[in-house]
């Protein structure tokens, strides 16, 4: 078993790096977009909130696999001829941004109205209130569900294998195609995914401890 693992690990390793790469891109893009969406939800005018609501509900109601296939085939029709990799990253990011947007909306909504009033009372502008009053407090509510969504992103990234990107999932399939030993390869790949997410959960506990100073 150990010897087998050592033999197959180099093949899986390249895929593992691709999985990390895809996940990291999606996490960063969806974080930025999602927080913007959340702020739009919380403070935007109706003409902004309405399309955001449609976007969020449509994307969150779609199976990720269907979304990836749709983006993969629809974008070319709209004149965008994308390689599988950017197409898949766009689909995943759009999907995760909707989820992160809801998390951010909830976190911002949990901050008492009095905080905004207090910020206004000392003469802070909207941007200053966001940056110095609201967001620092919202972080604490935001972090736990967001870390969960990062884990979901790593798991969801396995679907990019279905449009031919050689991530950990597809690398495992390819190794199996050569060795005809599905069980050990799948188990090995499972542990590699597990390792990423376990590392994430450890990191998140540190992060949450850092923000624990904010009392409710």
């Amino acid at each position: 078993m150990i010897e087998f693992a050592l033999r197959t690990l180099p093949f899986l390793w390249d895929g593992f790096l691709v999985t990390l790469h895809v996940s990291a891109l999606v996490v960063v893009v969806s974080l930025v977009a999602g927080v913007a969406i959340g702020i739009g939800f919380a403070y935007g005018p109706l003409w902004l909130r309405f399309p955001l609501r449609v976007y969020s509900d449509v994307l969150r109601g779609t199976p990720l696999l269907v979304l990836i296939f749709s983006v993969y085939y629809l974008l070319p029709m709209m004149g965008l001829n994308l390689q599988p990799f950017p197409a898949a990253v766009i689909a995943l990011s759009a999907f995760k941004a909707a989820h992160v947007g809801e998390i951010a909306r909830g976190a911002i909504g949990s901050i008492a109205r009095g905080q905004t009033d207090a910020g206004k009372a000392i003469g802070l502008t909207f941007a200053q209130r966001l940056a110095w009053v609201i967001l620092p407090q919202a972080v604490r509510r935001f972090l736990p569900p967001w870390v969960n969504s990062v884990t979901d992103t790593v798991k969801g990234s396995a679907l990019v294998s279905l449009v031919g990107i050689v991530d950990l999932m597809l690398a495992a399939q390819q190794v199996i195609g050569r060795t005809y030993e599905p069980l050990p390869v799948y188990v090995l790949a499972a542990f590699m995914y597990f390792a990423i997410n376990y590392a994430l959960s450890v990191a998140s506990r540190r992060l949450e401890a850092r923000f624990a100073y904010i009392r409710e």
Partner: peptide, 23 residues
Amino acid sequence: VEFIRNVPLLLLIYLVFYGIPSA
């Protein structure tokens, strides 16, 4: 709980359909 929640569903599907019967 931890194993299932930290592994992609797609991988679990393959694992159960191809992996376990092969062994």
